[in-house]
Simulated assay, not measured.
Amino acid sequence: MPARLLVVLDADSTLIRNEVIELIADEVGRGAEVAAATEAAMRGEVDFSASLRSRVEALAGVPVAAFARVLARIEPTPGVGALIDAVHERGGVVGVVSGGFHEILDTLAPRLGVDVWRANRLEVADGVLTGRVEGTIVDAAGKAAALREWAFAHDVPLTQTIAIGDGANDLQMMAAAALGIAFNAKPAVRAQADLVIGPVDLAQVVPLLP
Rank of each mutant, 00 (worst) to 15 (best):
M1Y: 06
P2I: 14
L5Q: 08
L5N: 05
L6Q: 12
L6R: 12
A11R: 14
D12Y: 09
D12C: 10
S13G: 03
S13E: 12
T14K: 13
T14N: 13
N18W: 07
V20D: 00
V20G: 00
E22G: 15
L23K: 11
I24S: 04
D26T: 11
E27P: 08
V28I: 03
R30A: 13
R30K: 10
A32K: 15
E33S: 06
E33I: 03
V34W: 03
A36Q: 06
A36C: 00
T38G: 07
T38W: 04
E39A: 15
A40R: 15
A41T: 03
M42K: 05
G44M: 02
E45K: 09
V46T: 14
D47I: 08
F48A: 14
S49F: 00
A50M: 07
S54D: 13
R55L: 11
E57P: 11
E57Q: 15
A60C: 13
G61V: 06
V62S: 03
V62L: 03
V62Y: 00
P63C: 09
A65Q: 11
F67R: 15
A68C: 04
V70S: 09
E75C: 13
P76S: 08
V80Y: 12
V80E: 05
G81S: 15
A82P: 12
I84N: 03
I84V: 13
D85S: 14
G91Y: 13
G91R: 07
G92V: 01
G95D: 07
V97D: 05
G99Y: 13
G100Y: 04
F101H: 04
F101T: 02
H102Y: 04
H102L: 10
H102M: 10
E103R: 15
I104Y: 02
L105G: 06
L105H: 00
D106W: 08
D106N: 05
L108I: 02
L112D: 07
D115Y: 13
V116D: 05
W117L: 11
V128N: 05
G131K: 13
V133K: 13
E134Q: 08
G135A: 03
G135T: 05
A140Q: 01
A141F: 04
A141L: 15
A141I: 14
K143F: 08
K143N: 01
A144Q: 11
A144G: 05
L147N: 03
R148Q: 09
F152C: 04
A153V: 02
A153I: 01
H154G: 01
D155S: 14
P157D: 04
P157S: 08
T159C: 08
Q160P: 02
Q160W: 01
Q160H: 05
T161A: 10
I162A: 09
G165R: 00
A168W: 12
N169C: 09
N169G: 04
N169H: 02
D170S: 04
Q172F: 03
M173N: 10
A175D: 15
A176M: 12
A176E: 15
I181S: 07
I181W: 11
F183S: 12
A185C: 10
K186C: 00
P187Q: 05
R190I: 01
R190T: 07
A191K: 04
A191I: 01
Q192W: 02
A193H: 12
L195V: 07
L195F: 11
V196W: 09
P199D: 09
P199A: 07
D201Q: 15
L202S: 06
Q204D: 13
Q204T: 12
L209P: 10
